[in-house]
Design a binder for these strands. Structure first.
Length: 225
DNA sequence: CCCTGATTCGC
DNA sequence: GCGAATCAGG
């Protein structure tokens, strides 16, 4: 398999969307996970949350891999997540009420008393706990933000080529399929997604033992064939 | 063991 | 440029 333009584009978008190299390789087909990673690095995109790179020590630690007298200048570029250090924006974000409990929670929904983690993101989206991703999302059809599309099959969808800084990049469907597109809503300023999908992407974390449902991955998770 | 991404190096 | 082999952390 060769790296055609479309395959490279798919690789880029999936890589930036947070898919693992294995998922990308499986989606593209004909390439290995290593091929995807190698290509991604050659393309310049790199250093997403990786398990092996979390180390960030101030003192230089030489790597004793073997007898390798190769000078290796490490260009460490820590990528700061916007969610971690985002300043609170007191403009119109709903501030937590100080009078009593959370207003919209009087339901004895579950027999247990699991603490429902609800927090407000910088753009005003509600961070959701793993238990309630699906509930408050009404079917919002993707809005077309581009004037015209040559291909009628995706005439009113946001395709790879339509992505820009203003539209939500949340993927809909599987890459490579004819109807694969992106959300295309107006983005929550400062985020790659719209407010709605920010709520999906930036979820409040429950304690390790208390999370039950599988996380809502983009692309609907690994494809079942 | 499994997974992950990073890096190296022969091709 | 490509990607298998390898490294290294979770």
């Amino acid at each position: 398999m060769s790296w055609t333009d479309e395959r490279i584009a798919t690789l880029k978008k999936m890589w930036e969307s947070g898919s693992t190299a294995s998922q990308i390789a499986d989606e593209l087909g004909g390439v290995s996970r290593n091929a995807v990673i190698g290509k991604a690095h050659r393309l310049g995109l790199k250093s997403r949350p990786s398990p092996v790179k979390a180390n960030d020590k101030k003192p230089a630690k030489p790597k004793p891999v073997a007898a390798k007298p190769i000078a290796k200048p490490v260009a460490a570029k820590p990528a700061a997540k916007p969610i971690a250090s985002a300043p609170a924006k007191p403009a119109d974000a709903p501030a937590p009420k100080a009078d009593s409990a959370i207003p919209s929670q009087p339901l004895p929904n579950r027999s247990s008393d699991l603490p429902k983690i609800v927090s407000v993101g910088p753009g005003g989206f509600l961070r959701q706990g793993p238990g309630d991703q699906q509930a408050p999302i009404p079917p919002a059809p993707p809005r077309r933000l581009v004037p015209a599309k040559p291909d009628p099959s995706i005439a009113d969808k946001t395709s790879l080529l339509d992505l820009n800084d203003k539209v939500c990049r949340w993927p809909m469907g599987h890459p490579g399929e004819p109807d694969f597109h992106f959300c295309g809503e107006q983005v929550n300023p400062g985020f790659p997604y719209c407010v709605e999908h920010c709520g999906r992407a930036y979820q409040a974390q429950l304690p390790r033992g208390a999370r039950r449902p599988p996380p809502p991955l983009p692309f609907g998770g690994p494809r079942v064939r």
